[in-house]
Simulated assay, not measured.
Amino acid sequence: MSKMDKLKNDYENIEIPEELDRVVRASIHEAKMKQRKKRPVSRNIIIGAVAAAALFIGSINVSPAFAKSMVNVPLLGSIVEVFTVQQLKVDEGTYQADVYTPIITGLENEELQAALNEKYVKENKELFEQFEKEIAELKELGGGHLGVDAGYEVMTDNDRILSIMRYQVNTVASSSTTMQYDTIDKVDNVLITLPSLFKDDSYIAAINTYIADEMERQMAADEMISYFTDNEYGEGFTTIKPDQNFYITNDQKLVISFDKYEVAPGYMGVVTFEIPTEVVRDLLVSDVYIQ
């Protein structure tokens, strides 16, 4: 069995911890307690390594043949990588599924890495098993249409930040789209949460005000843009959740994300708002992540 096949097999047979949240929290706490000093590295070396990693990862995801040819090539130091470990697929006419599962390698915090990878495998296994169950039920009733498309995209990958977006599109009569994000500090090896970026929960009101004003501005500028607001759709948008979906861009900007139908009609799809740093600057714990 090749190294790549063994890795795939290992993750397909992972036993999922019953208290995954506890594992993640414990690993974050442990990482925060360890303030290790990092040896300075030449900027040119970092840029070259990151560029090589990006090319390598992209090739794995695009070409399975390339992935197999790279099995015996040594990894570049401790570079953090994301690639597809498993694809679950169904192509039966009116029943369509295409589910890609990512894994992360190279994090120094191996417990956090394992917890995230186990979560990704668990989510997609459960999604695919539910899809198969629903197909069986539809066939008993005489047939129907059912589709699921799930995968991931690396939104940010720089010297410090790794942001991974996982999406799920379910199609029956219409489609729904949900997103989940994980943002990781690769230097301090911690999972970054939205509340952890701020001194207290005053960030919620500040971001709410900006988003509400931005919704009105966009709708006034373009009649094709529509949001659920107090004026048109009853209650409409009122607030983000304390743990609202977010990611951090390569330019160190905070982006807030809403699922399809969450704050806008379905034709608007997934909606994101990049929050100007001046809106939250005084509320941030530091400027390490957001600038």
Rank of each mutant, 00 (worst) to 15 (best):
V288W: 00
S176N: 11
F237G: 06
V99Y: 08
I60W: 15
Q35N: 07
S78P: 11
V187N: 06
E15H: 04
N245D: 15
Q35Y: 02
V24T: 10
E153R: 14
A173I: 04
L141H: 15
V255E: 09
E235S: 08
D149N: 13
N9V: 03
R43H: 06
R39L: 00
V23M: 07
R25M: 12
K186C: 00
Y152N: 09
A136V: 04
K32T: 04
T238P: 02
G143V: 00
Y152T: 13
Q291R: 13
N208K: 12
N124S: 09
G236F: 01
A52K: 08
Q252M: 07
N117T: 08
L76E: 09
I225L: 14
I248D: 04
S27I: 00
V80P: 05
D213V: 01
D188S: 01
F237R: 09
K89A: 11
S163V: 05
L141F: 12
V154P: 06
V270P: 12
D251A: 14
I207G: 02
E110C: 02
E134M: 14
D259L: 15
A136G: 02
D185W: 00
E274W: 03
F56E: 11
F246G: 01
E118Y: 08
E123T: 05
M4Q: 12
V50A: 04
T84V: 15
E111P: 07
S163I: 06
G236E: 03
V154A: 08
G142R: 14
T277H: 03
Q87C: 12
T193P: 07
T249N: 11
E235G: 01
F56P: 04
D201K: 14
